[in-house]
Amino acid sequence: MLCAVRGSGRTACPLARVCRNLLAFACIPALFVPGCSRAVDSSPTFKIEHEISPEPARVGPVTVTLRLADAAAKPITGARIALEADMSHPGMSPVFGAAKEVAPGQYQAQVTFGMAGDWVILLHAMLPDGKKLERQFDVRDVRPN
């Protein structure tokens, strides 16, 4: 018998007590939940467009074209841009590339995808006024050769 009734009428149930204590313990992680929202870089100051060719991307070298513009859609020239491409799985070799300005506000870089699957490209840009800009975009479904 799991529960016994005391003289006062309250149930002195070991199962209920254990449940209550465990529930209290189980609630601890819930404290983390409100703090778990992600910071999203939603700065409206800059506009970055990207394009990958070939499309869809394949294993091997691909060209990443970036167009940087300010809030007034004026091209941003003279930025220094470094790219880092990572796979969605940890432990895979990241690949790196530096973008060159090929037209005002338009930059191109070559990166070599070593494996099929989903890649994430991290963009680290240093703007002419010294501001740093970091963006991330997905390159899904890179096809095998």
Binding site: V59, H89, M115, A116, D118, D141, P144
Partner: peptide
């Protein structure tokens, strides 16, 4: 086999 890692 060639490895392929997708999140989708």
């Amino acid at each position: 086999q060639p490895m392929e890692m997708r999140a989708t």
